[in-house]
Computed example of a mutant assay.
Amino acid sequence: MPLRFLLAAILMCACGHGAWAEGLDAPAGALSCSGCHPASANVQTPAPGIVGRNADDLVASLLAFKNGKTPATVMDRVAKGFTDDEIRAIASWYAARKD
Rank of each mutant, 00 (worst) to 15 (best):
P2M: 10
A28E: 14
P2D: 14
A30Y: 02
A30F: 01
G81V: 02
A28M: 12
A95I: 04
A39W: 11
G81P: 04
E22N: 06
A21E: 07
I90P: 03
A30V: 09
T83W: 12
A91R: 03
M75I: 07
P48Y: 00
A41G: 13
K98D: 12
L6K: 06
T73P: 10
P46N: 00
A64M: 02
C36Q: 01
P27C: 13
R88W: 10
D56I: 00
Q44A: 14
F5Y: 08
L11K: 07
A64P: 07
D76F: 00
V51S: 01
V78C: 04
M75P: 04
I90S: 02
G35A: 14
A19I: 11
G52V: 04
L62R: 00
P2I: 14
G18H: 04
D56E: 15
P46Q: 09
E86V: 01
P38T: 07
L58K: 02
S40I: 01
G23V: 07
V78A: 06
M75F: 05
H17T: 15
A9N: 09
K66N: 08
P27D: 11
R77H: 13
V59M: 03
N54K: 13
L31F: 13
H37Y: 04
T70Y: 08
S34A: 14
H37P: 09
K69R: 09
R4T: 13
I50G: 01
A14W: 12
N54R: 01
T70F: 05
M12N: 11
A14C: 14
L58E: 12
E22A: 15
